[in-house]
Nucleic acid binder design. Structure first.
Lengths: 202, 202
DNA sequence: CCTACCGATCGGTAGG
DNA sequence: CCTACCGATCGGTAGG
C-alpha cells in the first residue's frame, strides 16, 4: 500500500512519463521508445511505467495525443485571432514554418516521422496518425476554400491542390532541417508559400 | 569445407540477401530489417547471412546501395535520352512521380524513409543517406540551372528554390500514397510540377 | 508503485 | 556456409 500515490500524484507521474516519451520518441521514433529506457530515465520500474497505460500501443497513442496538444498550441492556436481565409492561412503557414525552424520537436515534425514509421503497419497507431493528418488537411482546405470564395486567391484555385503543395513545402523544410541541418531552407519555404498565398490583384 | 560455395554462388547468395533486404526494409525500415528474419525467409542461418557483410550496419549500407541502383534505373536513366535543361527536368519529374505511383518500393520512397529513420542517429548510414540526397539535389539543380540559362524557365528563377519545391511535391505525393493510400494525389503532383516547369512564353 | 520473473528476439562470436 | 552459444534487451505478467 505504501507505494500507492494519490490521484493527483498519479496524474503528475503520467504527465511526466508522457513528456519524457515525447522527447524520446521525437528522436528515436514511437517504436524506439521503450518501456525499459523510460523506466531508467524516470527512475521508475518498468511495471510502474506500463501500469499507467497497460500496453506499449496505448502509451504510443497517448504520446501521439500529447504531441497533438503541442502542435495545436504551436501552430493552430496562434492563427485563431487572424481573420478566416487568406489572412489565417498565412499566419498558419508562418507558425508552421516557425515550428519546424525552432525544432519544437528536436527530431523534426512528430507526425511526419510517425507517418513514415507506421504507414506500413496496420493498427491503432497508424489509424490515429492518418486521422490526425486528415483533420489537419481539412482545416487547411477549409481556410483555402474561404480564401478562394472571398476572391483572396485566384478564381479556379483548387483548395485540395493548394493544401497538397503546402504539405509538400512543410515536408521539404522538415527534411532539409533534420537531414542536412540547413535552416536556410526556411527562406525557400517562405518564398514558395508566399508565391501561392498571394491575392490575384497583387 | 562442404558448405563452402564457389565465388559465383556466393555472389548470387549475396544478391538474393540484398533483394530480400530491400523488400523487408522498404516496409519495416533499415532497423526493422533483422538478421534473424532474413535468415528464416532465406532458409539460411543467421551467421550465414551476416557472414556476407560482417555487421548489420554494413548490411544496411549495402542495402542502401542496392536501393540506389533501383532508383537510378527507374528515375535517372529514363531521363538521359532527353535534352539537358527543361526537357530532361520534365522527364525526370514524370519518372519520379511514376516511381512513387507504381510503388517501386512497396513501403514508399526508400530514401525518404531512411532519412526519417536515421536523421537523428549519427553514423555511417545517416551519412550515406545525406550524401545520396545531396547528389540527387545537385543533379536536379544542374538541369534547372541549364533551363534558366537557356531561357526555358523565367529569368530570375532560383534553381535551389525550384529543387526545394520539387522535393516537396515528391514528398507530399509519397506521404499521401503511403499513409492515405490515395494515388489520386499524383494528379496534384503533376499539375504542381507542370506549373513550375513551364517556359516563360507559354 | 515495487520485485522478480517469463519467453522471445536482438546482433554478434567461436569454432568448424 | 553450419551449430551452438553469448549477454543484452524487448514487452508484458504475477503477486504484492
Amino acid at each position: 500500500m505504501s507505494p500507492r500515490r494519490s490521484v493527483a500524484e498519479a496524474l503528475g507521474t503520467r504527465a511526466s512519463i508522457l513528456d519524457r516519451s515525447v522527447a524520446i520518441a521525437s528522436m528515436e521514433g514511437l517504436e524506439g521508445l521503450t518501456i525499459g529506457r523510460l523506466a531508467i530515465e524516470l527512475s521508475m520500474s518498468k511495471s510502474g511505467v506500463l501500469g499507467h497505460f497497460g500496453t506499449k500501443e496505448a502509451l504510443q497513442l497517448a504520446v501521439l495525443d500529447r504531441a497533438g496538444e503541442i502542435f495545436r498550441a504551436e501552430v493552430w492556436e496562434p492563427a485563431l485571432p487572424a481573420a478566416p481565409g487568406l489572412a489565417r492561412l498565412r499566419v498558419l503557414c508562418e507558425a508552421w514554418i516557425s515550428y519546424l525552424e525552432r525544432r519544437v520537436f528536436p527530431g523534426g515534425c512528430f507526425f511526419v516521422a510517425a507517418a513514415h514509421e507506421f504507414d506500413g503497419r496496420p493498427g491503432a497507431v497508424r489509424d490515429a496518425v492518418e486521422s490526425r493528418f486528415g483533420v489537419w488537411r481539412a482545416r487547411l482546405a477549409k481556410e483555402a476554400r474561404r480564401a478562394v470564395d472571398a476572391g483572396e486567391l485566384p478564381a479556379g484555385t483548387d483548395p485540395g491542390r493548394l493544401v497538397f503543395e503546402l504539405m509538400g513545402m512543410a515536408m521539404a523544410l522538415n527534411h532539409t532541417i533534420q537531414l542536412h541541418g540547413d535552416p536556410h531552407a526556411a527562406t525557400y519555404a517562405r518564398e514558395a508559400v508566399n508565391a501561392r498565398l498571394t491575392p490575384p490583384s497583387a
